[in-house]
Design a protein around this nucleic acid. Structure first.
Lengths: 344, 344
DNA sequence: GATGTCATCGTAAACGTTTACGGCCTTGTT
DNA sequence: AACAAGGCCGTAAACGTTTACGATGACATC
């Protein structure tokens, strides 16, 4: 079903058919109606390769994720919510979102380089942002429009959206200190991912602001999975002087963490105060209820999409946002997992 | 960086350059080496649009998912694991996997139709298969190679891979009956998705084979989320004669189900025997340990990819599998959530 | 030396679009 | 009546590939 067949059917030149379909001004309204009707009837849709080749544009936005389940930064439900928000924006512009999973055996940098050189997409959304991320420098050098989900030291002035990790660290520590806790552990993610540094620095700053000394023994980095949470708790309990409270960089950790406490005959909250990160379906039914923070991932997706469009020449007049660097605010959801020391 | 620029650089015709890059036989080994070196040096990669236009092939495989987090979630790492398996196969053939999320506002059929008409991919993997699924008929009619994750009544002879839901239903019921249970509930997913029918029919057949009457009051369909599990338990407990055991169509249900029991002062396992579906990281730390079934999602992904290649003309000689219709075997992982009636 | 074979390479068409350009016809203006 | 303006449309080039076809030259065979 090429445009040629459609044109022959209508006895019109393919040039006119193309103009009619693309809403150009110099075509008789009558003719346009005929063309649109015939296209609809014959189920004609412009071939994307032909169009891309001619205009150098694909009408596709790529969203990279990493599928390494062991070291994953976020899971299916996190990203699906974000995708959903992203699509509500792109749908209005006839842009298609495609997710580009980077396999666990694959290198994220090579992955992006392949995506770019094959000219898959007009713009890119990057996740799992590293502290120094060669993908960012590469995209800037190539002039590819992009936004990252998560900050980075690389690249200087590019758009990103991130969660308010420093706010969370500060508020969590303050809340625990207010509850009488002085020995507050940190369950962090592995180095590499930038949030690991941000979260830990904010935690240290918060401790310092309350006059509490930093103790590296109770800062533990590992996989942010349920099993990872179990292991973190394991290590903390094995210390000569275990902490009385812990701040988690990810709520999935809480699931294993709770279990490890219970296995030791301890009660989450009473015997160890816990503050998680994001309110999520998985952590929702923990008991005692996990104190954590809420945000709308759908809205994050919307903002990601808009920020990306703001960097694309064809859309920046519709989205005059400039460079967006936004720390997403998160709302405290108090639970019963972090009572004052000695309570209960 | 077009092939023309590369050819000029080398003082060779673009035809020869193309043949050299594509490993054709009729090119001097010496020349080929020069071309490959120059391509590497200049960072040349063939433009995908040009190539697709010429050969009518995209070297892309699409994997459709639905992003409605409210009504259905597989485990939090379900799709990531599958993607990872799929990629290990496609990487060997220089095929790129792209995930095509269908937004919650969008219709899955329209979504597939758009994907096809824009000629995004050479082949498709479908998930969330409906009992009668118009997408399947459409793809067959258009002659697009595809595989589905999940069976369907539509389409007749196409390739699919599915989990062994009838085996699980049968074994779960048998196991519970052996434990003395006679009033066994079913927590099922909503109608539409084919597995809802398969699981329920198998459950009914299993009951019948043990001489147990079917009671529609204890078959509950709803969202397969943590919250959905809570609600299912809520309804079961409100019955005049609650069941003594329940079989879950999805392990996420178990998380809310446990919580509802505990909120009622009941003990999962002792007061209500529970058998979940798949062993997953989220359900791993439930206590008592959830009896469930294990499979390798990575391997499912591998098989999906191979089955798809087997239907694609360009690869079917390398994967002479014919039409694959495979019910994936799952291994019982006994827990403590389904003790014999009256035990404990 | 004529002929055939083979390796290697260049030429040009084709894929399906979009769009700059020019041409025709109608309409309006003087 | 002559001319200008503008609406509408056809023509053809261009995007970056791949590939069928033919050309060239080297070499061997008789």
């Amino acid at each position: 079903m090429s445009i040629k067949a459609l044109a022959q059917q209508l006895n019109i030149s393919i040039g006119t058919v193309s103009r009619a379909l693309n809403g150009r001004a110099d075509v008789n309204p009558e003719t346009r109606k005929r063309v649109l009707a015939a296209a609809e009837a014959m189920g004609y849709v412009a071939n994307q390769s032909g169009r891309s080749l001619r205009q150098g544009t694909t009408n596709v936005i790529g969203f990279t994720i990493e599928t390494n389940v062991e070291t994953k930064t976020q899971g299916d439900t996190f990203f699906m919510s974000v995708f959903d928000g992203v699509q509500t924006v792109f749908a209005r512009h006839k842009l298609d979102l495609v997710v580009l999973p980077c396999a666990s055996e694959d290198d994220p940098f090579d992955h992006v380089r392949r995506v770019v050189s094959r000219q898959f997409a007009d713009g890119l959304i990057l996740s799992a942002t590293q502290r120094t991320d060669p993908r960012i420098d590469f995209l800037i050098e190539r002039g590819i429009p992009f936004v990252t989900l998560g900050r980075s030291l690389s690249g200087g002035e590019h758009s990103w959206i991130d969660m308010d990790f420093e706010g969370i660290a500060a508020r969590s520590v303050a809340r625990l200190v207010a509850g009488g806790h002085r020995r507050i552990a940190l369950a962090n993610t592995e180095r590499g991912i930038n949030l690991s540094y941000i979260f830990e620095e904010s935690y240290r700053a918060a401790l310092a602001s309350h006059g509490i000394a930093y103790d590296p023994d109770i800062v533990i980095r590992g996989e942010i999975t349920e099993l990872g949470g179990y292991r973190v708790c394991d290590r903390l309990l094995a210390l000569p002087e275990p902490p009385t409270a812990v701040v988690l960089v990810n709520e999935n950790l809480a699931i294993g963490f709770y279990r490890r406490l219970l296995d030791a005959g301890l009660t989450p909250g009473r015997d160890m105060a816990i503050i998680g990160l994001r309110q999520s379906p998985q952590a929702r039914f923990l008991s005692p209820a996990l104190t954590c923070y809420r945000l709308s991932l759908h809205d994050v997706g919307v903002e990601l999409a808009q920020s990306l469009l703001a960097t694309m020449p064809a859309y920046k007049d519709q989205y005059p946002l400039g460079v967006v660097q936004k720390i997403w605010p998160m709302e405290l959801v108090p639970g019963e997992s972090d009572p004052p020391l000695g309570a209960g």
